[in-house]
Write a protein that binds this DNA or RNA. Structure first.
Length: 648
RNA sequence: GCUGCUGUAGCUCAGAGGUAGAGCACUCCCUUGGUAAGGGAGAGGUCGAGAGUUCAAUUCUCUCCAGCAGCACCA
């Protein structure tokens, strides 16, 4: 038998017979490793202990102490155990696929009746029995024909389809958990008893399309979460609770920010508190943009279909547009309009009015543009995904040579905005030319090169998303990570030679001839609605002082303090602080509780002592400690704190 | 849009084939209390909308609307 060389993590190499398995290697190293081993990394690939190694390779043996492989195996084996449990209980249910995902796994089943929450309990109990049985896991590679015949005989059409989708050069691998068999890429554990029985939970059922395709049948999906031990599971359940507690829909109600109602699905009724956040943020963005060389415009909401036909939206996006038909009494024909779903065509109209010279470029045209999109009902989510929203939109009209500098300028701008709003870092996804595209390869080379060197010039981290660009140009998407690790796409930067072409935008060049400008679509927050939702969830409602809708409540302890409370509120208001009096006939405990729940960042309590000394007792949200401060001092300090970051 | 679940007072929820209840919030009264709920009284509902079954529907059935979770979508 031929020999191969395996290299271990410590650098030692060893000659072994070809075809040896990691299990055999672990057994050879030590009895305890053999017992603890769960899988291996072979040339970096996750490797089943039972798979033979045929060529020289680097190898490392994994144990439960290796978090990533351990979690992958636990979750993947649980997917199989769950599918087995389901088929044991309901033998006619067809199985499909069950991948590992964040924090757990899911498995899709074909079954006429959806699973109920009670079913989940039964499945979970059955799974625990399978784990307790410590059933061995084994694997075999089958010829394609044999596997196909097997699944056809077993009446598992989805498995047959999966088989046909496995590329010809990949082995067809079968796994058994006890007697229950599944087609699976692997790797897996060695027996079901290795799965921690107290560290998983089935969380929910839902429908999902076969292969994610909404023209294919819907399947019943069961989700589970799993960890290496009970404590990790508990920690994750706590995390889910925490995420729910900071849900902007709940905080929006508790802080009295906005409401939504049936008559206007997907649209926001902003209350005074929420609108204060909105306008404060908008004022800030307006100052930032002005400082960065943007001009601001405003364009119509209701626009005749003719413009949308020219821009191409009527053709491609009509089902997402609110159509407005106006049938005037004496009109010869109905006017058909659409609420604008985006601002770009209107901005080109502004650009086109009057001749533009190369001296006007780059022209940075901004609008807090209210847009309406008929989003699918199932997509609506609080103020995060709505049908009526306002973008912090801008279009930069420029020459090809100006793209790089404009891109770098924008990334710098966005970086400073995100920092001011409490996000210290962001990631860029650079989407490059798709297969179906317009424009020459040279043009694409040039524009993509401009974007990439712009990113590099500002030193921002980025990843490339090959083929994900628009058909007319590449784009950058900017992702923020919030306080509990969720990722949000907010900013975008897109190069577009197409719309200027369609809508006939030109400028007079140095040579006296007409030229076509590029149009750069860019947004930093995305939409105010969504970004405010993100801000709320990121901060759990404890917004930075300058953005907090209610900044200070001045609360009386005794009614003798009422006049002085009024004086304090007036002084704070004069200093630019949003302050309000609470002189209700309630105990200070009650007031503190209520305003704490309302996420008011500062409570100033006023009793007899404060009146006499002309001081206040300050308490910050979330802190128990209080401090006594002179009125002049607190007014100056809070006034400074209320100043937006770009002005301080 | 698809699948499932849900819709009762401002909020969180109970309830039942014979037209409704709790806690909190709200209003009034008592209480002037020192940092996360002081006490009492009162007011408040076309039970999401429409149709059907029934002597009788908020309750059962159907359709629609909206919300929630997931999927699909996000120009």
């Amino acid at each position: 038998m031929s020999q191969i060389t395996l290299t271990f993590p410590d650098g030692n190499a060893r000659q072994v017979p070809a075809g040896i398995t990691p299990a055999e290697i672990a057994a050879d190293i030590s009895k305890s490793l053999s017992k603890k081993a769960i899988s291996a990394q072979v040339n970096g690939a996750h490797w089943d202990l039972a798979w033979p190694i045929d060529a020289d390779a680097s190898i490392a043996i994994n144990t439960m102490a290796d978090e990533n492989p351990a979690l992958e195996l636990i979750r993947h084996d649980l997917a199989h155990v769950m599918a087995r449990a389901v088929q044991e209980i309901w033998p006619d249910v067809k199985v499909t696929i069950g991948p590992v995902r964040d924090f757990g796994w899911f498995y899709d089943f074909d079954r006429a009746e959806p699973f109920t929450p009670e079913d989940l309990g039964e499945i979970e109990a059955r799974m625990k029995r399978i784990i307790a049985a410590r059933d061995p896991v084994r694997t075999e590679v089958w010829p394609r024909d044999k596997a196909r015949a097997h699944y056809e005989a077993a009446g598992e059409p989805f498995k047959v389809e999966l088989l046909d989708r496995i590329p010809g050069d990949e082995p067809i691998r079968m796994y058994w958990h006890g007697d229950w068999q599944d087609l699976c890429r692997g790797p897996h554990l060695q027996h079901t008893g290795q799965i921690p029985a107290d560290a998983f939970k089935l969380t929910r059922v839902s429908a999902a399309y076969w292969l994610g395709d909404n023209t294919r049948p819907q399947l019943q999906r069961i989700y589970g979460i799993a960890f290496r031990n009970r404590d990790d599971l508990k920690a994750h359940l706590k995390f889910l609770e925490e995420a729910e507690a900071r849900d902007h829909r709940r905080l929006g109600r508790e802080m009295d920010l906005y409401h939504m109602q049936e008559e206007a699905p997907g649209q926001v009724f902003w209350h005074p508190n929420g609108w204060t956040i909105y306008t404060t943020l908008q004022d800030y963005m307006r100052r930032k943009q002005r400082a960065d060389g943007y001009v601001e415009v405003n364009t119509p909401q209701v626009v005749d279909r003719a413009l949308w036909e020219k821009s191409g939206h009527w053709d491609k996006y009509q089902e997402h547009m609110f159509i407005v038909e106006v049938d005037e009494e004496h009109a010869r024909e109905k006017a058909i309009n659409a609420l604008k779903p985006m601002n770009c065509p209107c901005h080109v109209q502004v650009y086109n009015s009057g001749l533009k010279s190369y001296r006007d470029l780059p022209l940075r045209m901004a609008e807090f543009g209210s847009c309406s999109r008929y989003e699918p009902s199932g997509a609506l989510h609080g103020i995060m995904r709505v049908r009526g929203f306002t973008q912090d939109d801008a279009h930069i009209f420029c020459t090809e040579d100006q793209i790089e500098a404009e891109c770098a300028k924008f990334i710098t701008f966005l970086d400073s905005v995100y920092k001011d709003l409490g996000f210290d870092s962001f990631e860029i996804a650079f989407a490059t030319r798709p297969e179906k595209r317009v424009g020459s390869d040279e043009a694409w080379d040039h524009v993509e090169g401009a974007l990439e060197s712009a990113i590099k010039s500002v030193g921002a981290p980025y990843r490339i998303e090959e083929g994900d660009g628009a058909f007319y140009g590449p784009k950058l998407d900017f992702y923020l990570t919030d306080a509990i690790g969720r990722v949000w796409q907010c900013g975008t930067f897109q190069v577009d030679p197409n719309l200027p072409e369609r809508l006939g935008a030109t400028y007079i060049g140095e040579d006296g001839n007409k030229h076509r400008p590029y149009m750069l679509h860019r947004a930093c927050l995305g939409s105010f609605e969504r970004f405010i939702g993100i801000l709320i969830e990121n901060s759990s409602g404890k917004l930075p002082f300058w953005l907090a809708p209610r900044q200070v409540v001045v609360a009386s302890i005794v009614s003798d303090a009422d006049d002085y409370v009024g004086e304090v509120v007036a002084a704070l208001t004069k200093a630019g602080v949003r302050a309000e009096a609470d002189i209700r006939n309630e105990k200070i405990n009650y007031k503190v509780r209520e305003h704490s729940l309302g996420k008011v960042p500062v409570i100033l309590a006023i009793g007899k002592k404060e009146v006499e000394d002309r001081t206040v007792t300050l308490r910050r949200l979330g802190e128990k400690a209080t401090q006594v401060i002179a009125l002049d001092e607190v007014t100056a300090a809070l006034g400074a704190e209320a100043t937006p970051p770009d002005l301080s």
